[in-house]
Design a protein around this nucleic acid. Sequence first.
DNA 1: CGACCTCTTGAGTGAGCTCAAAAACAGTGG
DNA 2: CCACTGTTTTTGAGCTCACTCAAGAGGTCG
Lengths: 253, 253
Amino acid sequence: MNSMPATAIADPTQCGGCPVRRLALFEPLSTDQLAAMQAHRLEQRALPAGAVLYSQDSRIDETYTLFQGWVMLHRTLDDGRRQILQFALPGDFLGFQPDLNAPVFHAAQALTPVTLCVFKRESLLQMFREHPMLAIRMAWITARDEAMAHDHLTSLGRRPARERLAHLFLEIHQRLSTRGPVDERAGIPVPLKQEHLADALGLTTIHINRTLRLLRESGLATLRGGILRILDHQGLVEITGYRPDRFGTRPIL
Amino acid sequence: MNSMPATAIADPTQCGGCPVRRLALFEPLSTDQLAAMQAHRLEQRALPAGAVLYSQDSRIDETYTLFQGWVMLHRTLDDGRRQILQFALPGDFLGFQPDLNAPVFHAAQALTPVTLCVFKRESLLQMFREHPMLAIRMAWITARDEAMAHDHLTSLGRRPARERLAHLFLEIHQRLSTRGPVDERAGIPVPLKQEHLADALGLTTIHINRTLRLLRESGLATLRGGILRILDHQGLVEITGYRPDRFGTRPIL
DNA sequence: CGACCTCTTGAGTGAGCTCAAAAACAGTGG
DNA sequence: CCACTGTTTTTGAGCTCACTCAAGAGGTCG
């Protein structure tokens, strides 16, 4: 099943059109530079939910900018234990790693139908050479991801279940807010099963379930049917000591 | 105590001398470029053990390359819980973050006497502009750190105490090995107290102590008096599924 | 030789896990 | 519209790994 193939858009310049301008890697670029980008034949691609962008230990010669949808990065140990490293949201960059020839140590899988902008590795490197500003921006993006990983690390190492969950909810809420207003009342669409929360937070689904109920009964937040509702933002912040504006959107230079 | 001040070396070009050539940020640069670097008046600095390079929530206008010694990056929550994010070893780059104007969300503190190469922020950015290759290398370094954070994350989320400790020991062993041969027999000098291990691995000192005994009694590894001995490398690898060559030393371009 | 760390060991507790099974839900095909 | 099947959520009961509290032992340094 899911035999729907990756759809390649014929006109590559489409990719440099409206959506691109909103994306992190290109955000504050001059239109000059944007135009130059398009020379690199950015391929756009759509994948169904569940599709694997790249699998663990594989070698990849592509990197991606996520346009639409959610992707999870995860790592599986030999005996099947799984750790979700990151939920990638629109605007995030995927597949960049220190040694581009080495196998990746995690897998990337779509949680919803996704749209991606694909950069062949050679193309990416070429772009860096021609537009050093992009390399600097890449460093910035990677540093931002690292800061998020550090946050995540602190959660797993030093917070009990309730705080981990609260923290994740606030993070998701904030990340989605910076990319456009979210309707607090209607709730935030979050395509995560309890199993995903468990694998991201280092807990079991069963315990996630109980903790979810706890948050619900405390009137802090609910997650039902793929809709996250932040009921008491302040209350969640007090639990976690979360600070907004963690991951500045301003560029380095 | 520890009132010994930061010692600034008079001759800045010293910093571009012998030690620099071994460092990650500059490693495969042409001597041309190396020379250019020195124009930026790299200041070298020595600090005693326990010195704070920068503290949590402060704004920093410097970044560092670590020459000698160990540094820990850690984050402290309001109620005092602490998470060590990373142990920085010689060659590592410190203080680079997405928004260089924003406060850092972690602190950096020397675990041993250290020697650093200091880059003023302006100087670093200037270097990036003049030598885009450095920006690319910066992205590479950051991606490598992120990969290590992901490893760490997997440990905290999905491994029991014994495996976390074994994994950390293997990581330290490997990272030190790539920067020069280590004497397996004599053991590896590791300036970590049990408290550090606990804060890095999300456990208590007491439990670290018991787990350490467990590894010792299984003949896998010992840590006593600041000396780490890997007694059964293969055994540790089997526990953790650790793979060498995780963080390639090859550059991107 | 105190004073102060750091390490070690014991005893009891608890947050989160495992095992087990029911209930809700979403498709799917008749 | 309804059985039929698979997935996800929910709840219960018991267990364990890691935590807390407490105290002793071993170093180190002024």
